[in-house]
Design a protein around this nucleic acid. Sequence first.
DNA 1: GAGTTTTAGTTGCGAACGCAACAACCAGCG
DNA 2: CGCTGGTTGTTGCGTTCGCAACTAAAACTC
Lengths: 163, 163
Amino acid sequence: MRTQQPALKTPARIPSDALQRVWVALGRVSQGVQCEVETALKEAGFPELSWYTVLWELERAGTPTRPKDLAVPLFILPYQLSRLVDRMEKSGLVKRIACKEDKRGHLLELTAKGLALRKAMWAVYAPAMDEALKRINDSEALELARLLNKLGGIEHVDCSDKA
Amino acid sequence: MRTQQPALKTPARIPSDALQRVWVALGRVSQGVQCEVETALKEAGFPELSWYTVLWELERAGTPTRPKDLAVPLFILPYQLSRLVDRMEKSGLVKRIACKEDKRGHLLELTAKGLALRKAMWAVYAPAMDEALKRINDSEALELARLLNKLGGIEHVDCSDKA
DNA sequence: GAGTTTTAGTTGCGAACGCAACAACCAGCG
DNA sequence: CGCTGGTTGTTGCGTTCGCAACTAAAACTC
């Protein structure tokens, strides 16, 4: 299987009790809040969150964008995005337009309908997110975000964006 | 901005910047670590985490257990569990046995093979979890777990168990 | 004890997924 | 140029998923 480390770097450790608690809590809580928000969107007749994030990234970019440039920030695999765009294009939210610089790929363009849907979804998404996270206050939230980002190896994100 | 609270229904609040940061971080980080561990299991030729959790719950119960009693702690829907058990039974990890108290359902019994697999998976699972969470130390982990549990509305879990 | 409601669990079906293979193009080098 | 290797994105296929409808048994009602 995997080649043994040259030195005694990783001795196949068992996570401490504290880490196991984090693991359990992270799984349960993220699934819980995620599910809560997804349910709110579904009940309002909207598509799932992944659609929103594609629309939002395109809107934020402000210009037609290559799938590969979307896939990375969205933590999504190319074939997943390919099929997601298939569906979204079929629904008229997005359009594949030619890319003259690189004929392998194309650019994804947000349609007016896509833009409208993203805004409509935000009207449900935002309150649902607020509701799902209501049990902590702002200072706890900042500390929680800091610890999560440290856990994920994310340095000092300065994101002042939606979602 | 919004000083109204006792008014009517839901004021449709927009989450604060701090809460939005939590939302983003929670999604990204939980997906990241989850994926890391799943990948380790897959590379070792093991089934996915949900199989482990079923095996572990059954082992922890120490006695054949009703699906409904498994579904709740696992945050899983009945039909999901039904098909998961289908596959696990087909692999000989679990057995459906009759339940004389309630003939609608049955009991799930861990087989020797199932027990062995759970142990074998833990040998990969544990180091993978440790590796995925290595960026925080124990005191940070405790604080993180506390905040997550508060966020999820989970009171004072005393879990001294694996996963 | 017949009739109704609730609960436990399964299943048919269409949609979505993961993987590995693939076509198409670019880029580098002889 | 022709060849090789890497990148971009798609697709065939088998598996899994989500929903709603379903069977069966229990529990509750009169």
